[in-house]
Design a protein around this nucleic acid. Sequence first.
RNA 1: GCAGACGUAGCUCAGUUGGUUAGAGCGUCGGAUUGUGGCUCCGAAGGUCGGUGGUUCGAAUCCACCCGUCUGUACCA
Length: 513
Amino acid sequence: MAKKPNKLKARLPRGFVDRSAGDIRATDELLGRIREVYEKYGFDPVETPAFEYTDCLGKFLPDTDRPNAGVFSVQDDDEQWMSLRYDLTAPLARHVSENINDIQLPYRTYRAGWVFRNEKPGPGRFRQFMQFDADTVGAPGVQADAEMCMMMSDTMEALGIARGDYVIRVNNRKVLDGVLEAIGLGGEEDGERRLTVLRAMDKHDKFGSEGVRLLLGDGRKDESGDFTAGANLHPDAIEAILEILDASAIDDLIDYTNDLTFKTAALSKFAINEHFEAGFTELKLISDLVKGAGYMSDRISIDPSVVRGLEYYTGPVYEAELLFDVTNEKGEVVQFGSVGGGGRYDGLVKRFTGRDVPATGFSIGVSRLMTALKNLGKLGTADVVAPVLVTVMDGETAALARYQKMVQDLRAAGIRAEMYQGNWKKFGNQLKYADRRDCPIAIIQGSDERDAGEVQIKDLIEGKRLSEEITDNVTWRESRPAQITAKEDALVDTVRQLLADQAEDRRRAIEGR
RNA sequence: GCAGACGUAGCUCAGUUGGUUAGAGCGUCGGAUUGUGGCUCCGAAGGUCGGUGGUUCGAAUCCACCCGUCUGUACCA
C-alpha cells in the first residue's frame, strides 16, 4: 500500500493560545474600563514595540549562544541580539531614556500590550500574555506611590470587584532589607541567602507558615520527593520572619506611639535599624495619604509580608489581591495570588542616562484578571447577537442584488446582517448554518414571495423552542414554525421589532433565574 | 531545570497472558427531504496506536531513548 503523503500537522507552539470572539470582546471590555480609570487620573497612552535590543531589557546580556532562559531572543542580521519584551517596564525606561530631553517630567503614562516569557507554561499560565501598566516617571515622592495604590483600587472597583473582595497590599523593600540586616544577613556576601529568605517569604500563601519555616531552616521536600534547600537561619530569626508573615497589618508588629519598637516576642529580640525605620516612615506616609483621601485599610493595607520584584524595586511595592474564591472549570478552588502589582524602581532609567530619574508604576495581569472575572460572572456575558441571515433561493444576478439590498437596508438600520455566502442550492444547509451560527432571524424570499412583493421572516429562536414539541419531520417542515410573512418594504421594521422582542425575552429569562 | 503519572479516530474512551483486517459512543460529511433548522433512519469518511530503535515467527501490548500533556516543585523581571 502506498504511503500517504505526510500532511503538515497544524499545531500551536506550547504555551500560546488562539483567542476566540468571546475572549476578544471580553478583553476589549476589560481594557476599556481600565483605560477609563487611567485617563481620569491624567495618564496618557504610549506604545513601544514587542522587540527590544536584549541588553536594553535588563539583566540578560547577549554573551552566550542563547542570551538566557526566560526570554525569546533572536539575532539580527548585524548580529545584535534582540528579545521579545518580558514586561512593559523595561521598555518604558528605554523609551524615556531615549527621549529624555523631549519628555516633560513627571511623565504620567499607561500602555497595554503583549509580553512574552520563555518558561514552562501551565493551566492559566501562558508564554504570551497581556499586561496593562501605568507609571509615573520622574516623581521622587511617596505621594506618587500612594496615587498608584489608589488608582489600582479604583481600577478594581471599576471592573465590578466589590470593596472587600480585593485589597491593595503595600510594603517597602527598605523594611524587608532592614529585617534582613537585623537578623544578620546585611552583608555583601549574604546576597544569595537574602534572596532565599525573600523567596521563602513569598511562598507563605502557597505553603503556609509550616512550609515557610522549613524553607527558612533546613529545607523542604515536596510531595514528589524533590528537595528544596533552605536558608538555614537561626531559630530566633525564623520566628521573627514568621511573625511578620502572620501579621495582617503593620500595626500588629510595631508600636509607634512613642519610640519605634517591635511589639511581638521574637522580633523584639532584634533592634530596629536605619533601613527599617526609613521604610517604615515611607509606609506610614503612604498610609496617611491614602487614608486622607478616604481609602481605608479595607482597600489599601500596609502589609509587611508583601515580597515582589526582588531584582529591581527599590522602595514601596504594592500588589492587588483578590479575596474571593476563584474556581477552575472543574469547580475546584485555585490559589489565585495577585492580579497585579508594582513598585518604585529608581534605578532603571539611571542605567541609560546616568541621571537620577525616580519612577513608580504598576502592572495589571489582564489575562489572569480576566480568568478570575469570567468565573465570577462579571465579564463577557454582554452577549453579541449573531447576524440576521438573508437566505438565497435564486442565484440569478438580479435576485442576488435584491438579497444584497435587503442586507444593506438592515445594516443601514444598525442591524447585524449577512447574505448566505455558501452553496445556495442546498437550502436546508442555509438554515442549518443559521442555526449553528446562532442567528436570531432568517429572511427567506423565493420566487413566490418575490412575485407578491413579500418576504418570509423566520424567528429561529422561537422556532427552536417549538421544535421540542414536534416529533415528526413532515409536520415540522410543513408547519413552518415561528415564521411570518411581511411586505418587502416592511422588512426592516418587522426585523427590528422581532429583535426587540427577543431581547426582552432574554432580559426576562435572566431576571427569572 | 528536577520528580512522578499519562499518551489509541476531531472529542471521550474500549482493546484479553504479545496473535488474523484496531473498535464503540459523540461529532463531521452524504442521503431519505433538489423551497425550511430540530427529531428519526440509512450510509460514508476519518488511525504512521505520540516518535525512533530494539526483543520476537508476530508488538497498540514487552524494553530503551526521545517528544508531548498533566500534577508537584524550582525559577519568575
